[in-house]
Design a protein around this nucleic acid. Sequence first.
DNA 1: AATATTGATGCAAACGATTGCAGAACTGGC
DNA 2: GCCAGTTCTGCAATCGTTTGCATCAATATT
Lengths: 366, 366
Amino acid sequence: MSVTLKDVAQAARVSVSTASRALTGTGLTSERTQQRLTRIARELGYRPNPIARGLKTGQSRLVALLVHNLTNASFQVMAEVVQARLKALNYQMLLCIGGDDAQQESDTLTTLVDHRIDGLIVVPTGKNGAQLKALANDVPIVCLVRRDDATDLETVLADDPQGAYLGTRHLIELGHKRIGLIVGRQDTTSGRERLSGYVRALREAGIAKDDTLVHAGHFEPETGATGCRKLLDLARPPSAIFVANHEATLGALRVIAERNIAIPDDLSLLCYEDMPWFEWHRPAISIVDNGARDLANLAVDRLLHRMDAKSNGNDGVREYRVGARLVQRDSCRRIEAASAARTPRPKPSKSKSSAAKSSAAKPAKV
Amino acid sequence: MSVTLKDVAQAARVSVSTASRALTGTGLTSERTQQRLTRIARELGYRPNPIARGLKTGQSRLVALLVHNLTNASFQVMAEVVQARLKALNYQMLLCIGGDDAQQESDTLTTLVDHRIDGLIVVPTGKNGAQLKALANDVPIVCLVRRDDATDLETVLADDPQGAYLGTRHLIELGHKRIGLIVGRQDTTSGRERLSGYVRALREAGIAKDDTLVHAGHFEPETGATGCRKLLDLARPPSAIFVANHEATLGALRVIAERNIAIPDDLSLLCYEDMPWFEWHRPAISIVDNGARDLANLAVDRLLHRMDAKSNGNDGVREYRVGARLVQRDSCRRIEAASAARTPRPKPSKSKSSAAKSSAAKPAKV
DNA sequence: AATATTGATGCAAACGATTGCAGAACTGGC
DNA sequence: GCCAGTTCTGCAATCGTTTGCATCAATATT
């Protein structure tokens, strides 16, 4: 079907071995034949068969990226970054979707090593530690975004403590004293770390931690909705909410919209991780950027480093942290001490507050 | 490193050929040895090497999906569907991102066939027709979402004329007479087809087509913004806008928010293709669903059919259309004849109008 | 000019599976 | 118990590369 090395060799009247050496540039051929063969190969449209080569060399020039899903914007940019980087190095990216599911992750992992991938970047579920550890003997592996505590794999993490700290401090600096936090499950690293960053910022500012202001829940929009409702229904509701669980953002936004709460006038809102539409939203939503782009780049760096035969041994460093960054847009507002305790929820008594708000918003056509 | 067929054969004291036959189940082995070998293979943890197998059989159990990007929600669900389907059949999906770029598409395509993929589902840029056509001799190919006119490849398309028709008719049925359309470039199939669906619906309803109501532009949010502004600035602005260009949605929404236009009270808004946050948005945004899920499924069906050696020849059908569906949410409203010409733009006199507000300001809870 | 040295080439064996062909082991019929 | 017929098994070639080793030519060394 396609042109093989043998064809090239025949056309050039040399043996396959010479042809191979000339084309792979192992340097054991004369300058002249090398050039002649490259020319002939090009003319014939020869393309080496990676399967055959792989069989012999044990390499595939395939690098896999295993993520939970593609809905998460962070994973999207990571995938794009990884793809671009690898492509430049003549590797093909194998993008796999594991759905944060232990079984599926396990299956995918075996398929991948079967296919003799040259490297793997994985967002681990944390439930296949043993398997991952075993695979690490065969293939260079780098963990991304999450750590699998059952392994000692090199891991590239977002600096969640810092990110949460940054965000919380920003809100404090704007004058907020009661800051609600919606955060992920506390049995995950990111869930715990974000909470800790929040707590640290409060402590530094001398603000007493109020447990009723913290809602920890699953990675679903629904969490955001219930969390948000819970916070707003408090006797003394927060003047700012920090949604530090990416998946919860939609739910929180919905509740805010349902209750006609004006952002940032009635409530400041800060979210974690960017979404493409955040800056198109009105008001544009301020975020803590976890640095997805940097994370992906670093992961690729580390992987390539490990794939480099020479540096097979580890460097001692087991964990890398990529700094988070505050992106200020329009959803957080400076607040005066007096209004800190103002309740954004319309009480029956002062019935006009909500109506006034919305009509003020579009006074044109009453 | 890993267990090979030879190891299994040795352990069972048979030849490799017998082992191979027993394990692949070619039926030429005795029941007894077959069972014995499967047992031993399992005990030893034997996993066939797809590379070696591929070299011999010319198959890789790899199927590639080549899309433009991962930002587009449709591509996300397609990727997930394809992945799930293929996985069930023991194929590994190779997800590639081509960026709607001719060069990148071309490169990726060659890499893919080099890797001897067993099949390919591609959203073509339309600029590598010749190459695609040539590749089709080596690999079963199905085009998705877009057609490449330079080829006669089997293609699974969304029914854009019908979708646009459906959406427009819906707005007409709600009483709208002046319906703005923001649509994609007219040198793309989808751009043309959506316009034609729109036109047909108007014609059927006996509404004269007004060219000033149609804005065709590039696949970018900016298009949505300028288009939306243009429409709203008209002397007789539309009472409904149909954003039939997925990428333009964000831009349109922003302009609407900036101008404090209340959806659906001041303006009905209908979009094309779903985004995960549309139903969380307030008001939830009505859409024409292009059926991404069905498209992906059908594409897989067709591909599998072609990959089936028996049915190598084509079936004559070159083009499949997947029906679109109207998903009514809260962004379109019935309109009275009188209000059709009302201008939603606030006059300068109301100076405070630009105060930020979330797009959800409807005085529901007064 | 003969030999040592270097550099370029070819032969053939891998890599791990599949598969045509031929031989071995069974089966049953006489 | 022998032979035809059937079923099972093994040998060896093959897929398209890479690579150790031997060979051979050309150059350098004396």
